[in-house]
Amino acid sequence: MAKLYADAGTTWSKVLEIYENEKELETSPLLKIDDLSAYAVFENGKEYSDHTGNRHKGRTFLLPSKIFSSVPVNFDGATGHMVKQRINPDGKYHNEIVALAFGARKKVKNLENATVIDIGSRDLKWVKFENGKYRDLDWNGNCGSVTGATVEMLCKFYNIDLAALTPQREKISVTCGVFAMEKIMDNIASDIPAEIAVARYIHGIAYNAWVFAGKPEKVYLSGGFCLNSCFVESLKFYCDVTPLGRFILIEGLY
């Protein structure tokens, strides 16, 4: 029987459905979602193995959290505050840091000495491993807030193609998207192109994430910023970076 797992974020929610044969999908609870295929995320060559190593077929979806929360579907495993009440009786809930740690340990071979950072739309969390064992963690939901959401809003507002941004050596030093806005506006008012100002802001987020995580030498990056090359390249100014994608927390659930 198919099983459902969810990482319910503030703006985006990730869903994984694992199954043994396609027939099971005909009765999937996800079919309650209108135009479900529009939210499918195809990951070429992706294997879905549970924590015991058993392989499964699977499919993943990226849903706006507004839609995710409006559909009455329960899950076999989930993470994220908004989904706590939507776990099946024999299902499992992990908080986001635990899911991140379990997911990273499952997906990264030889996770000996590295820090895994997850940047969401409104928070930042990291888990540090030493000699393959969990060593330290932190979660910033206040001063690191609204970072991802701010980038999305800025790009929409200034009609910026995120993929075309060039990493900037100069950065706007910010700890939170709310305070950043003023400095970005200052830059633009000083005739600096919006693309440059936003790239500087992205560099600022990368720098702050790196400092908040204790200035690690090696970072595995989780979350939507993995797809933001400007962010990844900015973070590389400071450390070695391996993007893991935005489904790592879900990997920690099964």
């Binding site: 986001e96 840091i97 635990v98 969390k125 969990y134 932190d138 979660w139």
Partner: peptide
């Protein structure tokens, strides 16, 4: 919630 989650994670991990 993040403080509670940090404690939970510290205990679980």
């Amino acid at each position: 919630n993040s403080v509670k989650a940090k404690i939970e994670a510290f205990i679980k991990l």
